Amino acid sequence: MRGTIIRTTTAAAIGCATLAAVAGLAAPAGATATRVGIDPGISFGSATNYGTGCSYDIDGIVDDPVTPVVFYDNGIPFAYATPSGALAQTRWTPVTAGPHRLQVWQRRPDGQDVFPYVDIQVGNGLLTGSGCGVVN
């Protein structure tokens, strides 16, 4: 009985490995930015946690670890980064209060570019030493 369990387990493992290899071959070619996020850090405010003059980490999640990434604020490029694995990062310091659309872009050879984004509201920032107080 024990031999049967081992053979079944081995057959299942081989089947799973074959399925994983086929799925890997079917992966899309080209680069795509899939998500963008912003970390408010130690910023705080009543209406928003993002303030002018304060700096924030922006993360771009991508599926190509080599192709450079461009970060945009309201359609204007403000940073370029080379991904480390599936993550490209930069630091952003908003200059103006109001609505901001942060986007990340990674060029696709087929021209079917994707621009994931996050919309945030930025208030007036007051540096507190270890963080940022935000007022509107």
Rank of each mutant, 00 (worst) to 15 (best):
P40L: 02
D119I: 04
T82E: 09
H100W: 03
G75C: 13
A23I: 04
G41D: 12
C132W: 11
D64W: 01
Q121H: 11
N136Y: 15
S46L: 13
L127M: 03
N74T: 12
D73S: 11
C16E: 11
R91G: 07
Q106A: 01
A12Y: 08
G85L: 07
W105G: 05
Y50Q: 09
V95S: 13
V118P: 09
Q121I: 08
G125Y: 10
A23Y: 02
L126T: 07
P116F: 01
W105P: 01
R2F: 05
Q103Y: 00
D73F: 03
L102G: 03
F115Q: 06
A88N: 04
T93I: 00
A13Q: 13
W92P: 01
P65Q: 03
T9V: 02
S84R: 05
Q89Y: 06
A23P: 01
A88Y: 01
V70I: 13
D73Y: 05
P77H: 07
A21C: 09
G30A: 10
H100L: 02
W92V: 00
L87Y: 04
C132K: 10
A27H: 04
P68R: 04
P68E: 14
T32V: 08
A23T: 03
N49Q: 13
D110G: 00
D64F: 00
F78K: 05
I38G: 04
R101V: 12
T82N: 10
W92K: 00
F71D: 15
L25V: 00
A47G: 03
W105M: 10
V114A: 13
I38W: 02
D63P: 04
A97Q: 14
R108G: 14
N136K: 08
Y80H: 08
G85S: 06
N136F: 15
G75Y: 13
T90N: 14
A97S: 15
Y72V: 03
I61A: 08
T4I: 05
L127Y: 08
Y50C: 07
R91D: 14
I38E: 04
A29D: 13
S43G: 15
G24V: 00
D63H: 02
P83N: 06
A11H: 04
V36S: 13
Q106S: 04
I58T: 06
L25S: 08
V22W: 05
F71G: 12
A21G: 09
T9R: 08
D59T: 09
P65I: 00
V95M: 10
G123H: 11
A12N: 11
A26M: 14
G129Q: 11
A79E: 10
L102M: 05
I61W: 07
P116D: 13
G60H: 03
T82K: 01
D63G: 10
R35D: 15
A12L: 15
Q103D: 11
T9A: 12
D113A: 06
V134E: 12
P83G: 02
Q106L: 02
S55M: 00
A97L: 04
A17E: 02
G85D: 10
F78S: 07
G24A: 13
S130K: 04
Y80P: 00
R101Y: 00
